[in-house]
Design a binder for these strands. Structure first.
Lengths: 218, 218
DNA sequence: AAATAAATTTAGACTAATCTAAAAATAGAT
DNA sequence: ATCTATTTTTAGATTAGTCTAAATTTATTT
């Protein structure tokens, strides 16, 4: 059995270490988890005993494949719940993190599979971060800022960089939402504004907007 | 701050004591929570210190109004989540308890209000038990077995007594679901079967079925 | 009303997760 | 290469929740 606290440490090591590929230092974990380094050392030892991390004294921790599976699972749940909150419960993109932090620990395979289905198998959360699949794999995402797209390019809106409510309101007003298809109609060199098409409708957006919207190019 | 464990004790006392109206004994709580009586004594003392229960040595515990509010809130969340699982995630009525047991501890007022709205403000969970409102009040329910309705009476299906998958499949097949409007067309004295109407369609059901379906008479 | 049974509480110990303070190891600078 | 600063670990203590075993109170029976 794995405890909630262990799950949180494993998730943290996963995220600090670029999806489990890098070794993470004790202090780094301590800061992320808001605990003292001594507590982290204790926990790393326990995780090593249980086979979730590789650990040598003074050398930081690296997730084992077993640890990575656990972490990917928690992150998958976290991000699916975030999509749920935004898509089904009218949350805005910056309100969801703390609640997803709680929901990510609910244990039920069926629950998460059905949630995935209800949301129509999303690949990214509202911040534009990729959602690991059932096997824990992350599709290498080509998420970019809308700003970087060339004329005639198409993309799907997957997230925001600026999560201020002013920006979110702006998006709402112009019917730009998670999953919206966006086509770049033209770019204006003078002020870096661009004309984009959403659901057949062209609108002009400023550089400020284009550089705060994440899209996946198609 | 209230811990998860404290919440579980308070909920248990609420349910064993008929929505917080009766005093509950240490042993009763111990059995319900699968802990030893000595652990329960310790916890009751703590809950008394914090003002959630009234307690006199050897005399069991009674919820204070503060305790009742906490309990009603947890039960409200539990039952709303159960409705969500059945209505939105294709769970059957007997699979939801354990997951709701986890979900009931998620803390977010907005979450639960939005969930309530998404589900269209249900008054009963899939087992036919009433859902406390935001203020913790429970509408005194006139939930009865379909079996007890007289000819021409109408009701809304609110739950099942038998939660076997065989029965649930039977209901599915005959399009009897949570919230279905049911009208009693006629009763047959000989074998206690009855003809009922669901969405304009008459079907004949046996006494076995009628005595396992809860309805609220209108 | 005394004796016995059942329920409840106390006392003391254990585990998980945390902390502080001191010791040890590593890394960086001269 | 040595000294110093930083990082990490160890040692010992603390809190929440639990347990067992023994003691106490209440309830029941004769």
């Amino acid at each position: 059995m794995i405890t909630l606290t262990e799950e949180n440490y494993i998730k943290t090591i996963y995220q600090l270490g670029k999806y489990g590929t890098l070794t993470v230092s004790t202090n780094n974990i301590a800061e992320a988890i808001a605990a003292k380094a001594s507590s982290v050392t204790d926990m790393i030892k326990k995780l090593a005993d249980k086979g979730y991390v590789d650990y040598k004294r003074y050398q930081g921790a690296t997730l084992t494949s077993k640890g990575k599976k656990i972490a990917a699972d928690v992150v998958r749940k976290h991000r699916l719940w975030e999509v749920f909150l935004v898509e089904k419960l009218n949350f805005s993109w910056d309100e969801v993190h703390d609640i997803a932090e709680q929901l990510e620990h609910i244990k039920s395979d069926k629950l998460i599979n059905e949630l995935d289905k209800l949301l129509d198998y999303p690949t990214h959360d509202p911040h534009g971060d990729p959602i690991p699949d059932k096997r824990g794999e992350i599709k290498k995402s080509n998420k970019v800022l809308l700003f970087t797209l060339t004329e005639k390019a198409k993309g799907v809106c997957v997230g925001v960089k600026d999560t201020s409510s002013a920006f979110l309101k702006y998006l709402d007003k112009h019917k730009i939402a998670l999953g919206s298809e966006i086509r770049v109609v033209s770019r204006e060199d003078y002020d870096d504004s661009m004309v984009i098409e959403i659901k057949g409708k062209p609108i002009t957006i400023s550089q400020a907007v284009a550089s705060n919207l994440f899209v996946i190019e198609e």
